[in-house]
Structure formats: structure tokens, C-alpha cells
Amino acid sequence: MTELLQQLVDGIGRGSIYALLALGIAVIFGVMHLVNFAHGELITVSAYVGYGLFTLGLHWWALVPAILASSMLTALGIEFAAFRWVRNSSDFTMVLTSFGVHFVVQALFIMGVSANRRAFARPSWLFETVSVGGVNLEVYDLVVIGVTLLTLAGTVWLVRRTMFGMTLRAAADDFEAARLMGVRSNRVIRGAFVLSGALAGVAAVFWLMRTGQADPTAGLTPMLKGVLAALIGGLGSLGGAVVGGLALGLVEVLLISRLPDGVVGLTDGMVFLCIALLFVFRPQGIVTIRRAERV
């Protein structure tokens, strides 16, 4: 029982970061039907910003706003440089565009910094643990879960209570109709990118606290987790993305402790396989993807 509770907490801690990443991917998918495989680049950029400022001697708390700001700006910049121009193209075109962005950003860091990883220190409280009734709670996990809840609450407020949120939801619901009704597509899409950048920024802060590493492929793993979580949640659904993130975190923790030796490395593959099976056998269950084309 204690063990299960322990894994529950571990899983939710992990899953919170995935949820933030997935939410950012879902927001973008909602407004422009793009599966953004360049979402991880926001983490990569954040990592280098963090590393750069840290080497200048700044404290971790000073890095947080810088990382958030740079992540949002990068999201906006990528939208401006790449995604804006393929907005009404096929899904195929948009997905490949996002891979193009991935290659360019990665190469820029190889060129400008180095292919080698750069380390910076983690915050001192990172690994502190409190024990409650036999369950070890990492302070980090508690902070992650708390901040994630706050971020989600903020996002819910934004989406439900503001004009921007309403247009965002309208666009996610039916982009063409929303545009016909006068939603300013430029503004909505830019706003969506800033939102996804902010969410990725929060995730980046936590991710980097743990890894303390900057390298050109730093964003690859978080991107993969985010995409997997968003897929579990149905891609366009914001609530689904959060659920997907938490589910992915829990599944990983459960698999790692239960899988026999030698197949732990198959975790991502197994999750991917399950998602593929979901797409094969219950395509109608994944609502937003299969919203029937109007005939």
C-alpha cells in the first residue's frame, strides 16, 4: 500500500511536467492543427539561457523569469519565422516544418556553443525529502505539483474568463467557423504560441532544475514525452492533455518498477504502441482528431 502510494506521488510529480508540455502542444494543435515536434526547442533554448545566466553568476531564482521570458519569446519567434507561413497547409507540411525548426535550432547551438553538454548547478533544496507515513515526498515533486496546479488554474482562468480564451476555445472548436465569425486568427495564433511558450517555460524550469544540463538535444526527451501525453489526451483537448500527462507519468513509474530487467528501455516504445493501438481500434474515441469533415 505504501509502495503504491509512493509510486502515485512519484508518478504525479513526473506527470505534472509532462502535463505542462502536453498542454502547450494541445493549445497549438487546437488553433492550427499542428503537431508541434519543435516544442522541445523551447526547452533547449531555455537550457542555454539558464546555462548562460548561471555562468554569469545569477541565482536560480533570477533564472526563472529569464527562462519564462525566453521561452515565450522563442515560441513567438518560431511562429513568426516558420509556422506563420504554413498555417493553411496540409498536416504533412506543418509536421515537417516543425522538424525543420528542430534541426535548425539544434544546429545553431552546435555552431554557436558546442555539441557538448554544459552543466550548471541544481538548486540546493532539490533533493530534500519529507517522509509522511512511510511515503517519501520529494520537496521538488511537491513544488512541481503545486506550481503545476497554479499554472493550470491560471490557464483555466485564461481560457474560460478572458476574451482571448474564448476565441482560443472557439478556434479550437472549429477554426474555419471561428475565423468567419471574425476571430482575428493572427492574434489568436500568436497568443496560443505565447501561452504554449509560457507553459513550456514553467516545464523547462523544473526540467532544468533536475538535469542542470544544456545541450543541443536537451529538448528531445521532453518533447517526446509531451507529444506522447498530448496524444493520449486526444491532441486538441486541453483537459485531455493534462490527464494524458499525468497518465504518462504514472504509467512510466509503474512500468519501471514492474517491468523485468532488460525491458525498462522499452517504456517509451510500449507507451507509443498503446497509443497506436488506441488510434487503430478507437479512432472515434479521440474526438478532436477525427472531427468529421463537413460534407
Binding site: E3, Q6, Q7, D10, G13, R14, N136, E138, D141, W207, R210, T211, T221, V253, I256, S257, L259, D261, G262, V263, V264, G265, T267
Partner: peptide
């Protein structure tokens, strides 16, 4: 077991070791 280069969270293994 773990995934080299990629894994950033070893809390599962740590808790197993604690036991």
C-alpha cells in the same frame, strides 16, 4: 535498469533501494 543519457528521474529506483 535505466535508460542511459535520457533518464532524469530515478525516484523509483531510489525508493526501491530505500527498501
Amino acid at each position: 535498469n535505466y535508460v542511459p543519457i535520457e533518464d532524469v528521474d530515478f525516484s523509483s529506483q531510489a525508493n526501491e533501494m530505500a527498501n
